[in-house]
């Protein structure tokens, strides 16, 4: 079993198995969480991982900057260790940004289009 701590809900704790998505496990234990598509594509259920490890290989919604900022798509992520999260829109301070004022660098794009070396113009 893995212990999940929700920091912005008075450090409430939940015991999960880690074999199913955290959204399903935590909702079954009575935690009220937002969600939308339930397949990892839409970002509505994003939470911020403060400590711990998850497997969220099947998410397709987050760009690399959001991943580096700790965001986790709960509808597909499984707990791989004890974890601490902030949940809900209060955790979304870095999730949403004005894309014109604060554009992404090539390595910060979604994984299918991110590039990690600068391409120089001739």
């Amino acid at each position: 079993m893995k212990k999940i701590t929700i920091a912005n809900r008075n450090n409430s704790t939940y015991e999960v198995k880690g074999n199913r998505p955290l959204l399903l496990e935590l909702r079954a234990l009575g935690l009220d969480l937002p969600y939308g598509c339930q397949y990892g594509g839409c970002i509505t259920c994003a939470a911020k991982l403060i400590k711990g490890k998850v497997d969220q290989k099947s998410q397709v919604a987050l760009n690399n900057r959001q991943i580096n900022d700790g965001y986790v798509i709960l509808c597909v992520a499984r707990a791989k260790s004890n974890c601490t999260f902030d949940i809900g829109v209060e955790s979304h301070d870095k999730l949403y940004r004005n894309p014109f004022i604060d554009p992404l660098a090539p390595h910060e794009l979604k994984s299918d289009i991110a590039t990690f070396t600068e391409i120089k113009d001739d």
Binding site: G36, C37, G41, C42, I43, V60, A61, L62, N63, Y96, P99, F100, P103, L104, P106, L109, K110, I113
Partner: peptide, 18 residues
């Protein structure tokens, strides 16, 4: 694609023909 527009808008994805 839903996987492109549902999470939000990134200008770079226009250039990548998304």
């Amino acid at each position: 694609a839903p996987n492109t527009f549902m999470p939000g808008f990134d200008l770079e994805e226009v250039g990548h023909l998304k």
